[in-house]
Every structure is written in structure tokens, then in C-alpha cells.
Design a protein around this nucleic acid. Structure first.
Length: 324
DNA sequence: CTCGATCCCTGGACGC
DNA sequence: TGCGTCCAGGGATCGA
């Protein structure tokens, strides 16, 4: 699922592939995830993609109007500076293809470029979002966005947390608090800082808050280097998956051993989301119960009381590390 | 302010 | 092999 590192990866790929290209025409299929599909259809043709930026989980294709063969800069643009905003949601993918290649099943938008390629947006689940944003609309989006987790200072981060009675993970996921963090990197940063996701934000010590801020930043930076995590169907603008999922310490590791202490990673629901944590490293708050470990994961449950010991009548099979 | 529930949506995993 | 059911989750929205 695309979070900050994945969106950054896509932005970098798009930047080198489509900046400087002009949009010739727009083709739409399903449009229920587009704020104002007519505005996209009407305003994009003829405009040049001057830059590709990332803002939180948003991709911003900055558009300028071309006159007399020379592109104007953003500030000088004829008419209002504008952007195409793309949010990949859970399953969105965007990248250029040869225009002659048939559309895939879930491709919903195509922007024909002036070099014969077509920039396509596909999204099976359509949890994504697309919008043509004038300067004014963009300003509104920016205004309600939280701090940049890569840039936020220690005092600023502490201020975001201070006095909040919500669970820390809910705050990390709140795009109005921090922009760009999703379920994976929330869990990973909390594991690194040894803070339980269900912990109350206001109860974090200054030291914990700072560990969390630094851990989050470091994890995001490393994930960007590895071009993000491909856990569902994430691929970059060239269709290449990321590598950071190999580095996950908590997310998706229910039933596996904690990389620090070998305790079994557990899963519970926090802020309505599956949350993975180490019950030893990340002390759960009073009353917090993890989901029962799925039966198939209860391997070697030797320390569980009251259960008969495993029969040992089968040949030992070599231990296999699954890499999922 | 914070919570949980509900909705959106489809593919993949799982159980039988 | 096939079919039905459940679940994944970012974000909006609504009621408690």
C-alpha cells in the first residue's frame, strides 16, 4: 500500500519519465474516484507537465501552459497555476506505457503524451483519488495536512503529541497530524521506538517521543532508498516492486519471532487497523488484548500452559523461513 | 476531541 | 477444482 516512501518512489520515477511532456488528450473510463472528472478532461489537454512532486501521500503533477513553443514557468503560467493531484489509495498505480498497448482491466484514466506514450492510472479497488487542483484548491489541501515526518523538528513533534488522549498510532496515521504515514511505517516506527501502538500519546515521555520521531524518519528514509514496500501490489512508475518489505520488523509478522528479543509478534486492532507489535519490547497498556494467534501460527507453543506436549514421532523437517 | 461503525471496492486467502 | 465467505485498508462521514 502506498505510503510516503512508495509515493516518493513513484514521484521520482515519474519525474524522470514525464517531466517536460505535454498532455495531448485525456481518456476516462471509471471516474467515481475523481473529484471533478470534467475539470480533468477539460483542463489537462494542451498543458505541459513542469514538475512532479510528492506532498504526504499525494502526487502532484504541476502543470503549465505552453505558448509559442516555450514553456512558461509555474509563476508565469498563463492562467492559474494548477496541478493534477493523484492519491494512490490502496491499489493505485501510475506510469507511462506505449499508447498502442491495450488498457488493463482496471485502468481508468489515460493521458496521451506528445511523445506517443500514455500516462495511465490503474486502481482495482478505486480507493485512490484524483483531482484537478487550482492554486486555491491545492492551498486547501495543504492547509489541512499535518507536518512532514521527514522534516518535523523535535519540539514540533512533541507539540503534536502533547496533551492528546488518542492512541499514539491513531495520531501517526492521522494525515492532519503527520502527512504520509500509513499502517506499515506506523507499526515499524513504534516497534523501533519500543512503544506500543495502543499507548496513549500524552503518556509518552519526552525521550520516547524523540525516539519515535527519529525512528520514523530513519525508517522512512531507508524505505525510500529501497524504493518502498511491496506488500500488496505496489510497483513504482516503471512497474518495479520495492524491497523494504524484507526489512519489516513488525508489520505482517504475526506469529514470527521478534528480531530483538525472539518473542512472538502479535497482532491487535488499534485505531481500527491491524497492528503488529512485540508484546515484550512494546509493553501493551493495561487491558489491551491481542487477537488470538491463528491456529496455524501456533507452532511450537511449548510454553502454553495446560496443553499436552507435542508428539515427536515425525521426522524433523528442515526449517523454512518464509519470505512474505 | 476521540472512539467505533459503516461505506467505498476487488483480489486473494481460506475453509469446506 | 470450485464456490462462498472473510478480510485487507486510506479516508470520509456520522453518531455516541
Amino acid at each position: 500500500m502506498p505510503e510516503l516512501p512508495e509515493v516518493e518512489t513513484v514521484a521520482r520515477g515519474l519525474r524522470e519519465q514525464i517531466v517536460g511532456r505535454k498532455i495531448v488528450s485525456v481518456t476516462l473510463r471509471k471516474t467515481d474516484f475523481i473529484d471533478d472528472a470534467e475539470a480533468v478532461e477539460r483542463n489537462l489537454p494542451g498543458r505541459l507537465i513542469a514538475a512532479v512532486e510528492r506532498f504526504g501521500k499525494f502526487l502532484l503533477l504541476r502543470l503549465v501552459t505552453v505558448r509559442d513553443g516555450s514553456a512558461l514557468t509555474l509563476d508565469e503560467a498563463d492562467g492559474e497555476p494548477a496541478s493534477l493531484m493523484v492519491h494512490l489509495g490502496m491499489t493505485g498505480q501510475i506510469g507511462p506505457s506505449a499508447a498502442a498497448v491495450p488498457w488493463e482491466k482496471h485502468t481508468h484514466v489515460g493521458f496521451l503524451l506528445d511523445d506517443g506514450r500514455e500516462l495511465r492510472y490503474s486502481d482495482p479497488r478505486r480507493f485512490g483519488r484524483m483531482a484537478y487542483l487550482t492554486a486555491e484548491l491545492l492551498a486547501k489541501e495543504v492547509a489541512r495536512a499535518g507536518a512532514d515526518p521527514l522534516e518535523v523538528s523535535a519540539p514540533e513533534f512533541a507539540r503534536l503529541i502533547r496533551g492528546r488522549s488518542a492512541r499514539i498510532k491513531a495520531l501517526l496515521l492521522d494525515q492532519g497530524v503527520l502527512r504520509g504515514v500509513g499502517n506499515i511505517y506506523a507499526d515499524e516506527s513504534l516497534w523501533k521506538a519500543k512503544i506500543h501502538p495502543a499507548g496513549i500519546a500524552a503518556k509518552l515521555t519526552g525521550r520516547e517521543s524523540e525516539l519515535l520521531r527519529k525512528g520514523l524518519k530513519e525508517i522512512l528514509q531507508k524505505a525510500i532508498v529501497l524504493r518502498g514496500s511491496s506488500i500488496s501490489n505496489f510497483v513504482d512508475a516503471k512497474g518495479v516492486p520495492g524491497e523494504y518489505q524484507r526489512r519489516h520488523k513488525a508489520y505482517g509478522r504475526e506469529g514470527e519471532a521478534c528480531r530483538r528479543c525472539r518473542a512472538t509478534i502479535r497482532r491487535g486492532i488499534v485505531a481500527g487497523r491491524s497492528s503488529f507489535y512485540c508484546p515484550t519490547c512494546q509493553k501493551p497498556p493495561r487491558g489491551f488484548e491481542p487477537l488470538p494467534l491463528p491456529v496455524k501460527m501456533q507452532r511450537l507453543g511449548r510454553e502454553r500452559a495446560g496443553l499436552p506436549k507435542r508428539k515427536r514421532n515425525r521426522k524433523r523437517t528442515p526449517r523454512v523461513y518464509r519470505n512474505k
